[in-house]
Amino acid sequence: MLDAFTALSRGTRLVYTPGLRRYVFLPILVNLLVYTGLLYYVISRFGGWLDGWMAMVPSWLEWLNWLIWPLFVISLLLIVFFTFTLITSLIAAPFYGLLAEKVERVVTGQPPVDDRGIMRAGMDAIGRELVKLGYILPRMLLLFIISWIPVVNMIAPVLWGLFTAWTMAITYLDYPMDNNKVSFADMRRRLNARRIPTLTYGGWVTLITWLPLANLFLLPGAVAGAVLMWDKHYRDQGNATAVSR
């Protein structure tokens, strides 16, 4: 059985082979420009955000500042990272959808079920990203509220970590599933049915995104890794469901 780390390492090697690397450099350039702008914005305001959070700590909890402060820092970093990821994924989605299609042709020798043109694939990818945002943002808001509640927010970093891994899995595994006409609801069912591989894959992608600059070159490999994971872990679930019905 293909594990998540092997899928990511194979995928990264695959996207830089002569037949596929031309589909990689444009999303790298787009992400670089977005990351540069967002990073400048965050660095200029990070201290003010942190001071605002610490000012909300009740006086009777000030003796726990040594613990609350690092938890606030971790939560804030996770929120910033999560926002970065959502924005860059939305912008890069049309390019990554096309890359996933080309990788699937190479890996399986067959085109995806929904073999679309470039323009239609790009528009559909943006629409799919909006569907994902509709799923992610309410849950993100709930975690954000938890992060502001004294005492309860001590578990916020753990919750953010798990949610981020799950979201990364949804974000990248959705590219091959969308290309194969798997609905968003069906995709979540398939991911739930393979929760351990799904969270493991999402966790590795999360770690990749935390590597400054290197992540720009590794994330296309996560798209290819998602295609490999789709082919080995999730593709046949649709057939199994049809038989059971």
Score class of each variant (00 low, 15 high):
151 V>T: 01
99 L>W: 07
131 V>T: 13
120 R>I: 15
115 D>H: 08
132 K>D: 06
123 M>H: 07
109 G>E: 05
108 T>K: 13
146 I>G: 00
147 S>A: 15
134 G>E: 05
105 R>S: 09
113 V>P: 02
122 G>K: 13
102 K>D: 00
135 Y>I: 15
104 E>Y: 08
149 I>L: 10
99 L>R: 08
142 L>K: 03
114 D>W: 10
92 A>L: 11
96 Y>F: 15
157 P>K: 03
123 M>W: 09
113 V>G: 00
100 A>V: 14
140 M>D: 00
116 R>G: 01
110 Q>R: 15
102 K>S: 05
112 P>N: 01
150 P>L: 14
120 R>C: 05
143 L>V: 10
146 I>N: 02
126 I>M: 13
102 K>F: 07
108 T>R: 14
111 P>N: 08
100 A>P: 06
129 E>Q: 15
106 V>D: 01
123 M>A: 09
152 V>W: 13
145 I>H: 01
117 G>Y: 10
155 I>E: 00
146 I>M: 07
131 V>F: 08
97 G>I: 07
109 G>A: 05
128 R>V: 14
131 V>W: 08
127 G>N: 05
131 V>L: 13
95 F>W: 12
120 R>D: 11
144 F>M: 12
108 T>V: 10
141 L>P: 03
148 W>L: 15
124 D>E: 14
128 R>T: 10
151 V>L: 02
143 L>N: 03
94 P>G: 04
151 V>A: 02
105 R>W: 11
137 L>P: 07
123 M>F: 13
122 G>Q: 06
93 A>Q: 07
114 D>A: 15
97 G>L: 14
115 D>E: 13
119 M>L: 15
138 P>G: 04
116 R>W: 10
113 V>N: 00
101 E>D: 12
105 R>Q: 13
115 D>C: 03
112 P>S: 04
131 V>E: 04
102 K>V: 07
123 M>Q: 04
147 S>K: 10
126 I>R: 02
130 L>D: 00
131 V>Y: 07
120 R>M: 14
155 I>S: 04
105 R>C: 14
139 R>C: 12
157 P>F: 03
154 M>R: 05
106 V>Q: 11
143 L>R: 05
113 V>S: 04
110 Q>G: 01
115 D>Y: 09
118 I>G: 00
141 L>Y: 04
136 I>R: 04
149 I>N: 03
156 A>Y: 09
151 V>R: 03
144 F>K: 03
92 A>W: 06
150 P>C: 11
102 K>T: 07
98 L>S: 02
137 L>Y: 01
107 V>D: 00
95 F>M: 15
137 L>C: 03
103 V>L: 08
111 P>L: 11
